[in-house]
Nucleic acid binder design. Structure first.
Length: 1026
RNA sequence: ACCCAGGUGGCGGAAUCGGUAGACGCGCUGGUCUCAAACACCAGUGAUGCAAAUCGUGCGGGUUCGAGUCCCGCCCUGGGUACCA
């Protein structure tokens, strides 16, 4: 075929033919010569949908690859250009793996339960289900336009009863399980019951430790267990279940009748409304994630996740090794247990501090101190942990009047209460060693308690010695030992005396699982004799009931208590709902078999798809979602429901795309008080009275800058200019003859205010369209705009993209103008995926131009489609294979910005070579398809293929086309490059050295002197040391 | 305070292993085309300098024939976490 043979347009498409001649936009046919992104993209969107191009079968005969995106919460604001960043990246990988022969699962869904819809419902009465439906429809529309290869037949909604049936089912599995610490896995609760029936239970039972039951539950024998009534048995089992009702500390807001999250509380009052918040214990559903602490920690080593995420999880789990030490009470039975990482400093203990929440506080406080202690505890425990940490300098505490005995010396040790000790960490009590711990030192110093040095060379009059490489100086058996040796020695002694033991402690706490909210999964539990029982599986899904209002009841019960007949067989149902992270903890399994009515996903489907191969999402989920996700996976694996115990092998965090907001400067004007015209330079600090409220006066950023720099010197032309403009403004707003005047305060803080200005009103980087800005509001009709040159300038600042900053860029607008392929390429081209970077729409022209150039390799302005079957020459093949190599390697390491750059290089070089050959262009179309699927399909079609380009095998690069005959060596002197010399690649280093030294220019630079040394690195560099 | 990222032209960013710093794109400058504009195309574009040349990857040291890259000590920005015993 010759180069000018165009592909004939199909006059009338046959059944199932492509939409080549499909009339668009009222009968206008697309022009083949021009890159018409709108026509092309619309055609392929329809075609893909009609053909179900991206439908993925569960086909065990083919190798699988699972690419997952963190699914979005469908907010009312819709998508901005930052949202699809990760989806585009994962879509490229998914499409690439498809070309390489994998059966690729790449699904999308919605995390559709959540607070915003509920807030909106409270304000408007609109049912959250309705808002959610509207929002997801909008998301879907936006996502569809970007050309993702999602299999939409697999989409899931966490708020769909068919989905949350299985969220509830997993909850019931958790409720039905306990954690066997010897086998290190979750087991059916029936096994524990059998164990109790056979051998009873003792608090030391290593198999059934739960971390908190031991303290509350005494030992019992098999006979005692058998004698317990049903209710008692159930209450005991609560202490072991993985989903259990606990008495947890919560932020209770009586005025709002609800529990608040930590970040909804500021300075002890609710963020919204400013109502007082108290910390109180309430029955709360919790999940025993702490049982998995060690496995969650160990599992990290097997994962290909970013080091920063793994480190965040390690810190969150917070494993520390140390000892549990018991201090016997002197005036009462029992003891105080403390956890310490430094048992070697035990001889330095001068007091013990309890958290205000500690149960023993009330018990041990001496009669004469009760009032004071109660008062202190009352205020201290209501400070949130966040507040307690906020002011580190403020030391507070109170003496209980009680004492305990030092386990080694037998001395009496006073017991204090201090809010620097947290109820939720360790045992809620610390042994205070002011000589070795700075916080204890601060406390001791504040209250005049004794401070004893525990280490050699410490000066405890100034600060505590926290060195971990010190030598212990305390008299006794630890004296002279380094810390590392003293720790095990101290633990041995504690064990020998029976007053302590080695203990590993975790910062991780059990996860609160109940929410006093409406828009979440109902917890499938009912109460009989106030004891919780699981709903039978047949009663699932327990569907969210209708309520009259989405608010708590007057008595402070959650919204579900408003439902009529919220009961199961006459027994009341649980009224709290699950938290936002419930559905997202297992959704990846549902995509495997989304319509299964009998199981969360068929066993075959789970066996086939297995772990997620690539998971893409934001790093803000480091310690929330990503930890629960792993926890549920481990649990489901333990109970045999799935065959793997980590959900995602590889995790990549995409960075944030920031917005560049624009600020316009409004002069703050006053109608009275000050006559600046006389003094010229006034440095009045106080704000002035008589602030002028009326048509605003804006000033261009550059004018403002120059004006300030003029020093408001009346003789300065800029000052004169601005004053003149202000006079004009005054006349405009007051009328010419009014005699009223406007003043300003030259103090910079008062002179102007910077206001966010919608970025779509800008003409370029920083020029405002005054006309369009004026049109945005009636208040601006009379506004004045002061600018000393033609343009009116605003300031720009890189910030988070958000509605309130008016800097949101909508992908729909970009697609309308440039097309989805350009958007996709540009998002990738902006920079490394994992890095945060600002969005600048101006740069998009570059990627658009690239696609147009790519298109023109296939088309001639006059002759139309012009791809020839001529054999490619060496130079063309070199461009092709260099590109295939670079692009493939870059996709594999998810460096998409550099692969886009390589495509640009290829197009530039092929353009220069005037290459229009099929042998080069066809493989390039396949390689570009993952990035720009619409244009690739169109060109693939024009190349004469009748099946989708997505089915084409990935073109392999071949090293033979990349070999060079010669290399141009940079010749440097003492590391500084001076000239280039070209030598055959076959020339060995000795030959290169000789040839370099023989070169006249090198000789000239050497000035006849012999070089000290010549370094030749083949195919890299020659360095001459003189 | 600690942990994790990061700091390279006017801007976004390149630079496998320690080997030509600034690929690619934006922007800017000049030119061609055009009645003109837009588009497109061509050339140039780190700084200083007429040039030769010198300087240049946050700062200060070091290792090396050679450092954006490795080592030591700082500074700054972004994110996360915490009176964690």
């Amino acid at each position: 075929m010759s180069s000018d043979a165009p592909c004939p347009p199909d006059p009338a498409p046959a059944e199932g033919a492509y939409f080549r001649a499909c009339p668009l936009d009222g009968g206008v046919f697309s022009n083949d010569m021009q890159y018409d992104h709108k026509a092309i993209e619309e055609r392929w969107r329809k075609k893909w949908k009609a053909d179900k191009t991206y439908q993925v079968p569960n086909d065990p005969s083919r190798p699988k690859y699972y690419v997952l995106d963190m699914f979005p919460y469908p907010s009312g604001a819709g998508l901005h250009v930052g949202h699809p960043l990760g989806y585009i990246a994962s879509d490229i990988v998914a499409r690439f793996q498809r070309h390489r022969g994998f059966n690729v699962l790449h699904p999308m869904g919605y995390d559709s339960f959540g607070l915003p819809a509920e807030q909106y419902a409270i304000q408007t009465g609109q049912h959250p289900a309705k808002t959610t439906e509207e929002n997801t429809a909008r998301y879907r529309e936006q996502l569809d336009r970007i050309g993702f290869s999602f299999d939409w037949d697999r989409q899931v909604f966490t708020s769909d009863p068919a989905f949350y049936k299985w969220t509830q089912w997993i909850f019931l599995q958790l409720f039905d399980s306990w954690y066997d610490h010897q086998q290190q896995q979750a087991r059916p609760i029936q096994e524990l019951v059998a164990r109790f029936e056979a051998q009873g239970w003792a608090p030391g039972d290593a198999c059934a430790l739960t971390g908190d039951v031991e303290e509350e539950l005494g030992a019992f024998t098999a006979a005692e267990w058998a004698a317990h009534d049903e209710r008692t048995k159930q209450l005991i089992l609560q202490g072991f279940r993985l989903a259990y009702l606990s008495n947890a500390w919560v932020n209770w807001c009586p005025a709002l009748g609800t529990v608040l999250a930590n970040d909804e509380v500021k300075d002890g009052v609710s963020e919204r409304g400013g109502h007082p918040v108290e910390r109180k214990r309430m029955p709360q559903w919790s999940l025993r994630i702490t049982a998995y602490a060690q496995r969650l920690l160990d599992g990290l080593d097997t994962l290909d996740w970013s080091e920063s995420i793994k480190e965040a999880q390690r810190n969150w789990i917070g494993r520390s090794e140390g000892a549990l030490v018991r201090f016997k009470l002197t005036d009462a039975a029992g003891d105080i247990e403390v956890f310490t990482t430094r048992p070697d400093t035990l001889f330095g203990v001068t007091f013990v501090t309890l958290a205000p929440e500690h149960e023993l506080v009330e018990v041990i406080t001496s009669a004469d101190r009760k009032a004071e202690v109660r008062a202190y505890v009352g205020t201290a425990k209501n400070r949130s942990e966040r507040d307690r940490q906020a002011d580190v300098k403020r030391v507070s505490g109170v003496f209980t009047g009680a004492y305990c005995r030092h386990p080694f010396t037998g001395h009496e040790v006073p017991i204090w209460v201090g809010d620097y000790v947290l109820g939720g960490y360790g045992t809620g009590a610390v042994m205070a060693v002011p000589g070795g711990d700075q916080r204890d030192w601060n406390f001791a110093t504040h209250f005049g308690l004794p401070i004893v040095a525990v280490t050699e060379g410490a000066d405890v009059t100034k600060e505590a010695d926290e060195r971990k490489d010190a030598i212990i100086s305390s008299p006794g058996f630890l004296k002279g030992l380094p810390v590392s040796a003293a720790i095990p020695r101290a633990i041995d002694e504690l064990v020998k005396l029976g007053v302590g033991e080695r203990r590993v402690n975790y910062r991780l706490r059990d996860a609160a699982f109940g929410r006093q909210r409406y828009w979440g999964e109902p917890i499938p539990i009912y109460y009989k004799d106030e004891v919780p029982y699981a709903l039978p599986e047949s009663a699932l899904p327990l569907v969210l009931p209708e309520v009259d209002k989405f608010l708590p009841t007057e008595t402070g019960e959650p919204p579900l208590a408003r439902a009529t007949d919220w009961t199961y067989q006459g027994h009341p149902l649980e009224t709290t709902t699950m938290p936002g992270w419930a559905g997202s903890s297992w959704y990846f399994l549902r995509y495997m078999d989304p319509h299964n009515a009998g199981r969360f996903a068929a066993k075959e489907a789970v066996d086939y798809w297995g772990q997620v191969d690539l998971y893409v999402g934001g790093s803000e989920h480091a310690t929330g979602h990503l930890l629960y996700f792993r926890f549920w996976t481990k649990f489901l694996c333990d109970r045999g429901w799935i065959p793997f115990d980590e959900p995602a092998k590889k995790l990549v965090n995409q960075g944030m795309i920031q917005g560049v907001s624009a600020k316009i400067f409004r002069l703050n004007l006053y109608e009275s008080v000050l006559d600046v015209s006389e003094s010229g330079k006034s440095d009045i600090e106080k704000d002035l009275g008589g602030r002028f409220i009326g048509p605003p006066c804006f000033i261009s950023f550059d004018t403002l800058d120059l004006w300030i720099k003029s020093g408001f010197e009346p003789s300065h032309p800029m000052d004169a200019f601005v004053r003149d403009q202000l006079n004009t403004h005054a006349q405009k707003v007051f009328g010419r003859e009014s005699g009223r005047t406007l003043y300003y305060n030259p103090n910079r803080e008062h002179l102007y205010s910077g206001l966010y200005c919608p970025i779509d009103l800008l003409e370029d980087q920083c020029t405002l369209s005054i006309e369009r800005f004026r049109a945005t509001s009636a208040d601006l009709a009379e506004a004045s705009f002061i600018h000393h040159v033609d343009t009116f300038v605003v300031s720009r600042e890189v910030e988070k993209m958000s509605k309130s900053k008016l800097n949101v860029v909508n992908p729909d607008d970009i697609i309308e103008r440039y097309g989805a392929d350009t958007l996709r390429l540009y998002e990738m081209f902006l920079g490394p995926l994992e890095q945060s970077k600002p969005w600048d729409t101006n740069g998009i022209e570059g990627t658009f131009r690239f696609l147009r150039k790519f298109w023109h390799l296939f088309h001639d302005e006059q002759a139309g489609f012009r791809v020839s079957d001529e054999a490619p020459v060496k130079a063309e093949l070199k461009v092709l294979h260099a590109t295939l190599k670079k692009v493939q390697e870059d996709i594999e390491k998810m460096s998409f910005n550099t692969s886009v750059a390589q495509f640009m290089i290829a197009v530039n070089e092929l353009g220069a070579l005037k290459c229009h050959k099929r042998g080069v262009l066809e493989p390039l179309v396949i390689a570009l398809a993952p990035f720009a699927p619409h244009i690739a399909e169109e060109l693939w079609d024009k190349l004469g293929h009748r099946t989708s380009v997505t089915l084409a095998p990935w073109p392999k690069w071949d090293a033979q086309y990349l070999v060079e005959d010669s290399f141009s060596y940079p010749i440097s002197f003492n590391g500084k490059t001076r000239l280039q010399l070209e030598f055959p690649i076959t020339l060995d280093p000795k030959g290169v050295e000789a040839a370099v030294l023989a070169d006249p220019e090198v000789q000239q630079r050497l000035e006849g002197k012999a070089p000290k040394k010549v370094i030749v690195v083949p195919k890299r560099i020659v360095n001459i040391v003189v």
